[in-house]
Structure formats: C-alpha cells, structure tokens
Nucleic acid binder design. Structure first.
Length: 431
RNA sequence: GCUGAGGUAGCUUAGCCAGGCCUAAAGCGCCGGCCUUGAGAGCCGGUGGCGCCUUGCGCGCCGCGGGGGUUCAAAUCCCCCCCUCAGCGCCA
C-alpha cells in the first residue's frame, strides 16, 4: 500500500506508474474519495469538539433547566455526528478499497516495458550443457527411474499433484537441507512457520484482497494455506516496532507452498506448475537506505545455490509491465531446462520497499525519541525445490537413463553418486 | 472445547469494582536545555496517529487488543471477536 500523503502530493507520479505497469486503477476516484473523507473528517471533528465542550460543562451546571437544554443540544449534535460519520467512513472505505489495488512504485533502475519481452537479462552464469544423445524431459526421467509418480498423485489429489518416491523423495529432502545449510552459512536465521495463516497476514503481504482466488481457504476457520513462506515469515514482525540496530534481519525458511493456479493452464505433466510444491525462502527486513543493496546481496545468495549445483542460469530484471503487484524491483533467476530448450524461473528476488511494511505495520526506530519508520521488506526463493529437481534431472541425465547426483548433494544422500533404475517396481497385479 | 486471570503509549506498570477536572498518572529508556572543566546526579521540557489552516514552538479530533452498543459523557458499564497465561478436557 502506498502512503496516502505520497499519492495526494504526487498524483502524476502514481498515474505514470499505473501507465508503465499497464494497470488500470481509478486514481481520480481515489483522490475524490480522499477529498470527501478529509472534508467529512474536519466537520465531524468540529462537531465532536462542541459535544465534548458541552458534555464537560454539564456536571458543573446547577440550574436544572439549563442542564436539560445542554443535554438536548448534545443529543442533537450526536444525531448529526452519526450521519456525517457514516459519510466519512464510507468515503474512507471507498478510498482504501481503491488504494489496496494500487501497486507499488518501481525503483528507478527498473526498465520500462510492456511485458516479459521487455525484461532485461542482467547476467548469465555457466554454459548450456551439450548432449550427444536425445535428451529426455524430467517427466520421462522421473517416471523411467520410478522416482516421480504423477498418476498416483493426481488419482488421490487431482491434477497438479505428484508423488515423490525412493531417490526422488531423498533428492527433494537433500535439496532442502543443502539450501538451508547454505543460507545459514550466509547469515540467515532458519524459521519453520505456520503453514495456515489468518486473513490479516495475507493482507499484510499483499496476497489479499487481490489474489484471494489463487489461494486455498479453510472456510470453517477462516485460515489460508500459504502460497509462499514469504507470508508467515514477513508477518513474523507484523505490528512490531524493531530497533534500527537489529536491522538488517535475515531469515530463511523451508515450507510447502500451495497455489490454486485458478484459471491457469497446468502443464500436461511435470513439476513446473503444480498446486503444491516445496520452497526454501529468503526474507529480509532492512533499513530503507540499504534495501537496494540488500536486494543485490539477496539475489547473489540465491544464485549461490545454482552455482554450487552447477546449473546454467541467467538473471533477469523484470520490466515495469511484468513486475509483481507489491514489488518495487525484481530479479528472476531462470535455470536452463534442456528438454524445453528454454529457461525456467526458479527464484524471484524482490524488494517491496515500505509497501508490505505499511500494510503489516512493521516499523523500526532509530532512536527512542524519534518517530518510528516503516522497514523495507525483501524476499526471494532460495530456491524453488521442485523446479530445481526437474532441472537437475534434465541437466544431469546420462545416456543410459541414469542421473548423476550433483556433488554438493551427495553428502546429503549418504554419498550416493547416481540415481539408478530401481531393481524392483511396485506394479499392478497381472494375471 | 470448558473455566479463570489478563491485553493501557518504545518498554514496565497504575487507573476499571463505585463513568465526569483523565489534559490517561508514574517509572525506565531516549532527546534537548539548565548546572558542570567533562561525565554522572539533580532540576525543567519533550518523546502515538489523523485532520485543519492564519505553518504556529498553533487549533482540534482520535487513541487504553479489535469491532459494536448504552450514556449528555466510556480505559471504566454491556455484547461479539482476536491474542496471551494458568488449570481441566481431548489428541498426533
């Protein structure tokens, strides 16, 4: 959420932002409701003042006739306040209804552009692997090695769910542990948060109200399954005032993530777009003046995962038209997928400046006597597990169908070096 | 899930039963000033949000977990919800 004073004083900047993001929001109505809200606020304040003066004088008045008159006046004022107050609240409600749908202001470095074609490739690391045999997709590899079971996953939970088995499940677990250990080295504190959270938390990080349909909701308890650890970890400090000397704070968190992907086409088969996936997340709380630099460092920390796994990737800075709702600047990490012959996003590292902090009321003080200010929040995947596993299966595949295990993961898999076809497969009964 | 006790400013606490000089007191922390060679102590003042304009060392409103209600008047009385703690129940 943008600062109301900023919107009021810089309507042209906000209008420009909506333009370059390609977002349609009714800024004129917002400003009009704001004007009406402030007008009504002033009137209500004047009436309340009069009422307070009258109410205060009543116990001092001895004459009962005069007292009766004052009480009557007070009652009349209350009637008028009630009317005006209704107007005031309606104007505020309408104003903030629109304001909650206004996206964040991009940082100056963000390229102007319409869609993903205008994103800027910032850097590349490593080289595309070459194969002297026909490459297989991670779906086929997963099924051939009997480590990913799409059929049984969707049978019990529907499309968009899959089951990991044997070395597949172990590899997933190895990736989680490898990433968490790496991020601990990099100075992040590990968090294991609630996976279900209240609507306030979802509003704090910006998922609500705009993306309600993209999330799983438990109606009975009014709780939402988290779409990313960003939600519970950022809200760790909601409604708090932190000390400047504690900033920046670095957190890392492994959680499952749940996304309905409403109205979106799910890939026929595969782990790229699914309803449930695992992710290790990085979250930072920083001083406003340090957040741009912290984003660069956070991105580098996420990149380190891919470097150690020796996976070819590139870093892309999103243009204004492709930037997420709450983000002020985003770098996507995209890993090379041989079977797709393209890059797939495994991480999205963003700074939200004070946008989330204002919603979630995460503040800090530099000195006890100074005003509290909003912190800057940042986060990025470090990185998405399922997609990374897919990238490993494809990039590390061998001609004989086996898959080599990246060296850094071997200690997490009891020293195992390759994933082989299982000796035994659980098959259906055949007569 | 039940019962009880709680939630007050950056923090710690009083006020609540008996509604009204409550302008929410006090302490701590922090900032400024006085004093001092300097520091400390001491003393004085400041230290939440919003709105308004004559932008003044201004005026007003709001603010006591959140939301309603009663009343001329609510931190205080009533109702609903959230959270914390203790005990009981249930349970991986």
């Amino acid at each position: 959420m943008l600062d109301m004073n900023f919107i009021r004083e810089n309507p042209d900047k906000v209008r420009w932002m909506l333009e370059v993001r390609g977002v349609d929001a009714d800024l004129d109505s917002l400003l009009e409701w704001d004007r009406r809200f402030r007008e009504a606020t002033t009137k209500v304040n004047e009436l309340r003042h009069r009422r307070n003066v009258v109410a205060e004088s009543i116990p001092r008045v001895k004459d009962s006739e005069e007292k009766r008159k004052l009480i009557e006046e007070s009652r009349e004022i209350n009637r008028r306040i009630k009317e005006l107050e209704a107007e005031r609240r309606e104007a505020l409600r309408r104003r903030d209804e629109i304001r909650l749908l206004i996206p964040n202001m991009p940082r100056p470095s963000v390229p102007i552009g319409k869609d993903e074609d205008d994103n800027r490739v910032v850097r590349e690391w490593g080289e595309k692997p070459t194969f002297n045999f026909p490459v297989k997709s991670h779906q086929d590899i997963g099924e051939d090695l009997d480590i990913i079971d799409f059929t049984r996953g969707s049978r019990m939970a529907g499309t968009g769910f899959y089951v990991l088995k044997g070395d597949g499940a172990r590899l997933e677990r190895a990736l989680i542990n490898f990433m968490l250990d790496l991020h601990k080295e990099q100075g992040y504190i590990e968090i294991f948060p609630p996976i279900l959270v209240k609507p306030e938390a979802m509003t704090g990080t910006g998922q609500l109200p705009k993306f309600k349909d993209d999330m799983y909701w438990c109606e009975r308890d009014d709780l939402y399954l988290i779409p990313t650890a960003e939600v519970p970890v950022t809200n760790l400090h909601m409604n708090e005032i932190l000390s400047a000397e504690d900033l920046p704070i670095y957190y890392t968190s492994y959680t499952p993530c749940f996304r309905r992907e409403a109205g979106r086409h799910l890939y026929e088969k595969g782990v790229i777009r699914v309803h449930q996936f695992n992710k290790v997340e990085l979250v930072k709380f920083s001083l406003p003046e340090e957040s741009d630099e912290e984003l660069e460092k956070l991105t580098a920390d996420a990149e380190e995962v891919l470097k150690r796994l020796k996976l070819h990737y590139r870093v892309v800075q999103l243009c204004t038209g492709d930037l997420g709702f709450s983000s002020a600047n985003t770098y996507d990490l995209e890993v090379w997928m041989p079977s797709f012959e393209t890059y797939v996003e495994v991480s999205s590292c963003s700074t939200f400046t004070d946008f989330q902090a204002r919603r979630a009321k995460i503040r800090f003080k530099r000195k006890a006597h100074l005003e509290s200010e909003f912190v800057h929040t940042l986060n990025g995947s470090g990185v998405a597990i399922g997609r990374t596993m897919a990238a490993i299966l494809e990039n590390y595949q061998l001609e004989d169908g086996r898959v080599e295990i990246p060296k850094v993961l071997r200690p997490y898999m009891g020293g195992q070096e390759v994933i082989e076809k299982p000796e035994k497969r659980i098959t259906l009964f055949k007569s």
